[in-house]
Amino acid sequence: MIGGLAETVVGAGGVAADYGPVPVVLFYVFAAMTVGAGFSVALARNIVRAAVGLLFALVGMSGLYFLLHAEYLAAVQLVVYVGGTLILIVFGVMLTSKSPTTNYDAKRYEVVWAVVIGVLLVVPLGWLMLAARWHGVSAAGGGGGEFGAGGGGWGVLD
């Protein structure tokens, strides 16, 4: 059914439905895979290890697309990203890796900037995403407002 809402996550009419623990467990598996591999890309010193981390991040994203009932997109993600873009990047790594004089390790002030900007991104954006009551998002538990942080009638696009 083209355009059908996710049976595993969202029920008919966009209302969040309870389909038991399986989709939730799968979500946490894929989310941990995606986010963990994403940060391993940031932390890896060896560029090949970063490429492997990117591989797992992209595969985890594909799983999240499946949970959101976007099967075609998940397949395209696997074929185009994992099968095409990532191979291209690995080829680039192989063609440019012979430079023994260069040291690609991050400098100290770069790490400090990365931590500062990371915190400045995650804290306000995360708070916004959890607190906002999105206009048009299914009201019966489908919106981020279910987390309860958005009390007091505060809404971004409401």
Binding site: D18, V35, A42, Y104, E110, V122, L125, G141
Partner: peptide, 30 residues
């Protein structure tokens, strides 16, 4: 147990932060 929009948005936020941190930390163009 119900998955909400907020679950997926938090994954997106963390992935964005990982990407920005990667761009700041790496000096390797790839």
């Amino acid at each position: 147990m119900v998955l909400t929009l907020g679950h997926f948005l938090m994954v997106s936020v963390l992935l964005l932060a990982a990407g920005v941190i990667t761009m700041i930390v790496k000096r390797n163009a790839i």
